[in-house]
Amino acid sequence: MVSVPVSTTINSDEVEFLCRADESLLDVLRNRLGLMGAKEGCGTGDCGACSVIMDGRIVCSCLVLGAEAEGRTIETIEGMADGNELHPLQKKFIEHAALQCGICTPGFLMAAKALLDANPDPTEEEIRFWLAGNLCRCTGYDKIVRAVADAAQEMRGKRA
């Protein structure tokens, strides 16, 4: 099969790669670009472990083709912190013990970031429904929801 050349922007860097036409963005990120922070929990769009933000929208990268990244802007977990300065969500996840095994964490952080980008003051119910596409088997979600709410509050404080 012939490879497709793709030019895209990932975490503010211009990136070019070749991929097969049927290759998922997740496989491109992990296998071709060394960005292993997105995880494959299912490969069928059901777990959210592979979540990345594409043109401002949260997507399952296992359901996006690598070739579809052409001309887009993609944010992954590797670009969430500003150098050594963690994003408030990252800090709050650690502080609230919102991860146990942590395999779901990159996906949750991307989804939560997309939520707070769109809605800086979500209710508990809004948080729960927004994050319903991300599976976590360890935590029972309690501490995740608290961490997101706390991060939102802190970020609102900063904005004000």
């Binding site: 922070g37 995880k39 992954t76 969430m80 963690l86 650690i94 013990a97 942590g102 990159p106």
Partner: peptide, 21 residues
């Protein structure tokens, strides 16, 4: 007490290496 876990930063930045990583 409830200090931060030592593997926390690796796990929130995507650097922690799991089975497939």
């Amino acid at each position: 007490t409830r200090p931060r876990r030592p593997d926390g930063i690796d796990k929130v930045t995507g650097r922690a290496r799991y089975g497939a990583d």
